[in-house]
Design a protein around this nucleic acid. Structure first.
Lengths: 235, 235
DNA sequence: AAAAACAACTTGTAAATACAAGTTAAAAAA
DNA sequence: TTTTTTAACTTGTATTTACAAGTTGTTTTT
């Protein structure tokens, strides 16, 4: 029944509490020993949970002091964006599906190397345009291998997170990835899509996301309007 | 004498081996139990070392199989903690010091919040221009607090990694950080500095690096010519 | 009153141990 | 020969225990 490891459960609990605001920014989490007592687990297990929170940038730890809550900015998928004008979190996030998921063959000159299984399975293609405060900021093109995904082309993606659907309906979880970033001059189409001002460049991101399923990687090309927002990251 | 924790030593050994080419890409590292035997430490310690390698993107692990070597990319890896010199390979990387380290007061409207100690200590300022294959790609402006750094203004930084000097001479190690990325239109000065083609935008990065010393953070503003190279990162 | 020492916290590192779960190849059965 | 089972690996999770080291507030000493 309980397939989820204990450290993961504690991680989810603390994560939820931090995001929901149980702790304010700068607050100390309960000490490791307290967490041990409350959740009935040993310190290494508790520490494992805290380490994953550190990796997510949700807390920092300080020897002799404790675990300090860090409230990151709201993120889109794995990337985080932060407003440059106001340091506050992103308010409205809307998603338009420009191309509903369709089954295709992999494009020629695909920038990433594919495994044999991925190559044979063909790919699912979709395009999205994402808004912050009713302004388009994100245009992304996604390729996923056509395995483990029954009926995905019939699903509604409107205003839903792709990652959320993959996790909830297909038990696919992102575990990491690699990405390349560049600054590029937008095409005319892009300029219209993202409502770009004349001369405004865009951030170009190419990413490969690794999942818990072998031979199932998500490939995304992202164009980001960094006029009013920035890509934010912890490491 | 032994101030360095064991897991860290093993990490350094394996990291060096991977980078120097003892293992080819895709090779398996010795199993955790083998590493235990060879280096005379227990599995939790070995696993701690391997976890840090995973975090650096140098290996991936697979249950039942082993630790797979992942060779960092040839691109410039400033998204990872590793300094730029080590990621690109010192051969193709040259550094010009445009502004030798000088003691200044912190600028007005500094984009990051400073601790009291940092504020009081004043800052050390330097500018560098970094070349790959004799082409300028990187212009960076650095602010460090003026603590823990005796005689730094007398040091030669020519063709040396800032991080290496901080580590070797001052025992300061980068432990993480946060950054913001944008695509921006370059100023005339920048266009000349980075030999930019007309219309070529630049990648703008603002970063705060946390170190092992409390109240000692490195603040950098980076302009990156992404025409021929890209910023690369694992997560 | 100010400084030093101490005690009671906190997280960091490390050992020894156990079992679960995924992978692989050899051995056994069909 | 082909398929199935098994055994021997691998990493993943978890407990228990111990001491080191940084932080903070209290107590003692000066």
């Amino acid at each position: 029944m309980d397939n989820i490891p204990q450290y993961r459960k504690l991680y989810e609990i603390l994560r939820k509490h931090i995001i929901k605001g149980v702790y304010a920014e700068g607050d100390l989490l309960p000490s490791e020993n307290e967490l041990c007592a409350v959740h009935e687990m040993t310190r290494p297990t508790v520490r494992h949970a805290l380490e994953t929170l550190v990796k997510d940038g949700l807390i920092t730890k300080k020897q002799g002091k404790g675990s300090i809550v860090r409230k990151p900015s709201q993120n889109i998928g794995i990337l985080s964006i932060a407003g440059t004008a106001s340091a506050v979190g992103v308010r409205y996030l809307k998603t338009d599906i420009l191309q509903k998921p369709v089954i295709k063959t992999w494009p020629e000159n695909f920038p990433f190397e594919l495994s044999e299984l991925e190559q044979e399975s063909g790919c699912i293609y979709m395009e999205r345009l994402r808004y912050v405060d009713d302004e388009p900021v994100f245009y992304d093109i996604n390729h996923l291998p056509n395995i483990f995904l029954p009926r995905i082309t019939q699903r509604s993606f409107e205003n839903k997170s792709l990652f959320e659907i993959l996790r909830k309906h297909y038990q696919i979880e992102i575990q990491g990835g690699e990405q390349q970033l560049k600054a590029v001059k937008p095409t005319v189409q892009l300029r219209q899509l993202l409502h770009l001002k004349p001369g405004q460049p865009v951030l170009y991101i190419e990413r490969k996301l690794h999942t818990n399923k072998p031979d199932f990687n998500i490939y995304s090309t992202i164009y980001f309007n960094s006029d009013k927002h920035a890509i934010f990251g912890n490491f």
